[in-house]
Amino acid sequence: MIHSMTGFGKATARFETRTITVTIKSLNSKQADLSARIASSYRDAELELRTLITDRLQRGKIELSITMEDDALEGNAKPINREALLGYVHQLTAISRELGETAPIDLVALLRLPGVMDSEGTTSTEISKAEWDALRSATLEAVDALQAFREQEGRMLYEVCATRIRKIAYLLEQIAYPESERITAIRQRLEEGLAKIAPAGGYDSARLEQEMIFYIEKLDINEEKSRLAHHLSYFLEILDQPNVGQGKTLGFIAQEIGREINTMGSKSNHAAMQQLVVQMKDELEQIKEQVLNIL
């Protein structure tokens, strides 16, 4: 069963007075591209979390967000780093004395300076094994939720791709009808053209038959039809594989399907056949758009 690369997962965990929230989003991408916004208390665990997530999600543009709220802080307000704030105040006071000027200190502006609203100065950055286990458990739960979302989206992608592949197969069968008329129409057109320009003695009918054979061989699409039918069958076979990660393979098969359809279009030389080829191309474009989102 195929999985989509689009997904969303969220999980929370409690550790003592802290609430840990893990949110993971993913979109389609050619490879695993993870960007993370992690609470400062857990930054030391970022490398392990990245490995944990990418090993399970394989591909996609992944956004990881980890936040922490501590009930021990009044109103869950973010703590002010007093040492950093006082450091800025002392420096500004010293500079004012050197310049011989006195200016009011804007505490609100100082809160925006780096490190002032960072809790690293007031709490330890090291986390215990129990807290790491809680963080890891929440991350895995969020990954599982995202995987379930991907699986659900994958079922929808499966139906869309399978339906359009079957539509191309149906159109391929319809080509047989105008194709049988095409040879007769080509022969008749050539004979009418020769009759208009032929000398009074006529033309060599045996030579005409020989040239007709050469000409018709160039327009023959039986090989293209056979290869296209094989590619369509192989596409459905890959869709039905139980493992996950068929996206790139399906993309390659879609390219081969497009190559055979284009060749048939260039050889068709018949309005009804060209209309069927255009419909095939339209179905294939829809498939290619969906394949880009398959894991």
Rank of each mutant, 00 (worst) to 15 (best):
V22T: 11
T23H: 03
I24W: 00
I24C: 01
S26K: 03
L27T: 11
N28H: 12
K30V: 03
Q31G: 12
Q31K: 04
S35Y: 04
A36S: 15
A36N: 01
R37Q: 09
I38Y: 01
A39Q: 03
S41M: 10
Y42K: 05
D44Y: 01
D44V: 01
L47P: 00
L47H: 05
L49P: 05
T51V: 02
L57W: 01
Q58I: 12
G60S: 01
K61M: 02
E63R: 08
S65V: 13
I66R: 02
T67Y: 01
M68I: 13
M68A: 13
A72R: 10
L73G: 07
E74Q: 15
G75A: 08
G75K: 09
N76I: 02
K78N: 06
K78P: 00
P79M: 04
P79H: 01
I80E: 06
I80D: 09
R82V: 14
E83L: 11
E83D: 15
E83A: 12
L85E: 07
H90L: 08
H90T: 11
L92W: 05
L92K: 06
A94T: 10
G100E: 12
E101I: 15
P104W: 09
I105T: 06
D106M: 15
D106C: 12
V108P: 00
A109Q: 15
L111R: 06
G115Y: 05
S119K: 11
G121T: 08
T122E: 15
T122W: 09
T122A: 14
T123I: 13
T123G: 07
I127T: 12
I127W: 06
A130N: 14
E131P: 05
W132L: 14
W132P: 04
W132N: 07
L135M: 10
S137Q: 14
A138F: 02
E141W: 03
V143H: 00
V143E: 02
A145D: 04
L146P: 00
